[in-house]
Amino acid sequence: MPIESDDELRDILELDTVAVVGCSSTPGKDAHEIPKYLREHGYDVIPVNPFADEIFGRTVYDSLTDVDEEIDIVDVFRPSEEVSDIVDNAIERDDAGVVWTQLGIRDDEAAKRAEDAGKRVVQDHCMKVEHQRLVE
C-alpha cells in the first residue's frame, strides 16, 4: 500500500536528494516551481528531462538511468501512463528508496512492483504541500 501516514511522509521528507523526472525549465509550471521550492528548502534536486540542458544551474539528465549521483527520492512529474517505465528505472537503482508521484499522478500496478522491490511509494501527493504541512 502506498504511504499515507503523516509519520511515514515526515520520515521521507527528511531525505536529501530528489531526482525530479519531468522537471521543467519553464517558470510558472508546477514541474519547475515545486522543485525550486524544494531546492530553497535544502533538498538537492537533480533535474531529469530529455528536452532541457540546464535547470537551476545544473546539468539535466535525459533519464533516471543516466543519473550518476546517489538518489533518495524519485519525484515524478509525468503523466500516469509514463509512471510504469519510470518505476522500472527506479527499481534498477539500489539507491532510490522512494518513488513519489505528484498530485493527479498514479499507477497502482507500478506502485505494487516498486513496493515488491523494496521501495516506499507515495502516490498522488505534492511534495511541496506535504513539506509545508509536515515540516515547515
Rank of each mutant, 00 (worst) to 15 (best):
E8R: 14
T101R: 02
D7Q: 13
W100D: 04
S25I: 07
S63N: 09
A90S: 09
E4G: 12
V21S: 00
E33H: 12
I34L: 07
H41A: 00
D85S: 12
Y43W: 14
K36W: 02
E81A: 14
C23I: 03
D62L: 10
D7S: 14
E69T: 08
K128R: 15
S24Y: 04
R113F: 05
I71Q: 05
R10N: 03
A110M: 08
F51E: 05
V48C: 08
L134D: 08
L13G: 02
T65V: 11
R106T: 05
A96W: 08
T101I: 03
L9C: 08
R120N: 04
D88N: 15
D116F: 09
D88M: 10
V74S: 01
I34M: 10
C23N: 02
V122H: 06
W100M: 06
I46C: 03
V122M: 02
E81P: 11
N49F: 05
G118H: 07
R93M: 08
V98M: 10
P79M: 10
I34K: 00
C23K: 01
I34T: 06
D107L: 07
A110S: 12
D11E: 15
R106C: 10
S25T: 04
Q102T: 12
Y61S: 13
A19G: 11
Q123P: 00
L38I: 03
V129M: 13
S5A: 12
D6W: 03
K119L: 09
G97L: 10
A90I: 02
E136C: 06
G57Y: 14
N49G: 01
E8M: 13
F77L: 08
R39P: 00
E70T: 11
D124A: 10
D75P: 03
V48G: 02
V122F: 12
I91E: 05
Q102C: 09
F56D: 06
E92L: 10
D30V: 13
E8A: 15
P47T: 07
D95K: 01
M127L: 14
P2Q: 12
P27D: 12
E4I: 14
D68A: 07
R120Q: 06
G22Y: 00
F51Q: 12
V87K: 01
F56E: 09
P50V: 08
L15T: 03
E82T: 06
E33L: 06
H41L: 09
R113I: 07
L9M: 13
M1T: 11
R78C: 09
L38S: 05
I34D: 00
V20F: 01
R93F: 06
V135W: 00
E82Y: 10
I55E: 01
P50Y: 06
G22A: 02
I73G: 03
D62K: 15
V99T: 11
A110L: 04
D124E: 11
M127S: 10
D108A: 13
P27V: 13
E4Y: 08
P2I: 11
I73Y: 10
F77A: 00
D66K: 15
L15H: 02
D11M: 06
V45P: 02
H131Q: 03
R113W: 02
I34N: 02
L134I: 04
